[in-house]
């Protein structure tokens, strides 16, 4: 889990509007990003940025995801992510980007 921000940083950003933030919180271990990225890929949700940080004593991995071409509804994607999260013993949440925009930008 020591990835640098992804290579996709070189591409132009997709239009805002249908983006979500995926947050993974839990003890650090091998395979977490791979597992979550796999669920996103199956749903055709494009990861456009990844970073990691620390929330209290846990690792926190954050992905910015473009849902423009997603093949399943938001709710279904959330459920799949959470199921995968349980397998990996981490907490996964997905939230529309707007909530962060309004709370942290005027």
């Amino acid at each position: 889990m020591n990835q640098q921000p992804s290579q996709s940083a070189a591409r132009p950003a997709p239009p805002p509007g249908n983006r979500a933030i995926v947050t993974i919180i839990g003890p650090d271990r091998v395979g977490i990003i791979a597992g979550i990225a796999n669920v996103l890929a199956e749903a055709n949700a494009n990861i456009i940025d990844i970073s990691q940080s620390v929330l209290r004593e846990f690792f926190a991995m954050i992905m910015v995801v473009d849902l423009e071409r997603a093949t399943i509804p938001f709710d279904a994607l959330r459920e799949r992510l959470q199921t995968k999260g349980r397998e990996l013993a981490v907490q996964v949440s997905i939230q529309r980007e707007d909530i962060f925009k309004v709370m942290h930008r005027i």
Binding site: P5, T23, I25, D49, S51, S53, V64, F100, M103, R105
Partner: peptide, 17 residues
């Protein structure tokens, strides 16, 4: 997190709240 328009810290602040 240059595409997010806000920092990882800000995202985690919301999650924390």
């Amino acid at each position: 997190m240059e595409y997010a328009n806000f920092s990882a810290e800000e995202i985690l602040e919301t999650i924390n709240m």
